[in-house]
Design a protein around this nucleic acid. Structure first.
Lengths: 223, 223
DNA sequence: TCACGCGCTTACACTATGTGCAAGTTTGCA
DNA sequence: TGCAAACTTGCACATAGTGTAAGCGCGTGA
């Protein structure tokens, strides 16, 4: 989201309007998350969220197209952050290495906490599947674009298959690492747990880089 | 496996009720596809589909949860078919090889045609994204189960990450091949086009098997 | 062959979702 | 200060999705 440390920041100038909008947006997701905690997935309506956020039902729909979309914005926030990290990596670095670095950089409590809570509240509830899948796919599209930019000008510039397959696989492996981590540790955010997440992400990218050769490749847990 | 009636029939005994249900289901998807052709995505309602299929609106919802779900059943049909092919492969074969074989076996006009038309009608229309992503994810879960079964008893039985990452990557690469193929050929089902699809699927699996080492790996088109 | 039971279809009613529109309110700017 | 643009809100309306109970068609056993 925002890294507003010093006065001379990248933003042009956060006007009052934009601050209000950001605040409203935040109020909506907060309210939605609170209701998810309190009532469980599928047991509250847009009207409930709007009331809890102190806005009208109509205004809710000015921000999000559905309850799901409001909750998925949490996932979007995390993944957008990941993309941002990815774009910071040097362009001549192998993409797998960049992805590994970007993901590991994101494995800190601040960034993972909302995601972990969302997962713990929606686990094995297909009600959440739709917008979450869409969020990951959006991220995939971003990775695709980064990968394409990097390959621009190289001999294989036009190899769409390579770029599509790579982007999709990177996302799948990142997702797999997150999923395994959550299955093992639940919403545990302790340093040891986060270290394991980092190792899983590293291992997942390594699997991709080695073509899934050895079924027992990792240092993170070998049965 | 053997019933007295038909020579090569696998079903236990298609009763009249089941035939009716199958027919209705088919009528619904046919009607939905026809409306998609005629009016474009998002420009028709459940009521329209029901009317075209000769059933009530309520009955539609007895079969599908939404218009999207009705159309996604086409994708589901294709992917279920792929899973079936995958399960026919010998259990000691490498999974990538099995996936390659299963996918190539599915690259025939009969199986691909409905999928190709659906793609051509919904391309760059996010209205279709949700249920389609869900269909792919369902397939991913199936591949995951197959992979887990195959590794049961091997030294790496408990390596969840490996299985999750592999299943996800296989799906992503299959998806990538289909996407590239459609971007190149559109709804072209000529033998040459299908041969290219097959080659793309093979190349995609090869990329996965070689860890995406060479950015210019394929025989399918190198710019 | 017939009648009973069960499953599927349907109409109805109702809640929730999502959107267009116009009026009211706040913010930016000259 | 005053105007214009952006944002919020209430209202109306079309559509989605579901529970319920009555009606119809299919399978089955007497």
């Amino acid at each position: 989201m925002s890294t507003l440390d010093s006065p001379a920041d990248a933003g042009p100038a956060p006007s009052r309007r934009e601050l209000n909008k950001a605040a409203t947006r935040q109020a909506i997701t907060d309210a939605a998350l609170a209701l998810l905690r309190g009532k469980g997935p599928g047991n509250f309506t847009v009207e409930d969220i709007a009331e809890a956020a102190g806005i009208s039902r109509r205004t809710f729909f000015n921000y999000f197209g559905s309850t799901d979309a409001a909750l998925a914005s949490i996932v979007h926030g995390f993944l957008d952050n990941a993309i941002q990290q990815l774009r910071l990596r040097p362009a001549d670095e192998p993409l797998l290495e960049s992805a590994r670095a970007a993901l590991v950089a994101l494995a800190d409590p601040k960034a993972v906490a909302p995601l972990a809570e969302l997962f713990s509240l929606t686990q094995q509830s297909p009600l959440m599947a739709h917008p979450e899948l869409e969020a990951w796919d959006h991220c995939r599209a971003q990775v695709f674009m980064v990968a394409r930019e990097r390959l621009a000008g190289t001999p294989s510039e036009a190899d769409e298959l390579y770029v599509h397959a790579l982007a999709g696989s990177v996302i799948s492996c990142g997702k797999a690492a997150m999923e395994v981590w959550f299955n093992r540790r639940g919403p545990d955010l302790s340093p040891a747990s986060l270290a394991e997440l980092r190792q899983l992400l590293i291992d997942a990218m390594a699997l991709l880089g080695t073509g899934f050769t050895t079924p027992a490749p990792s240092t993170s847990r070998s049965s």
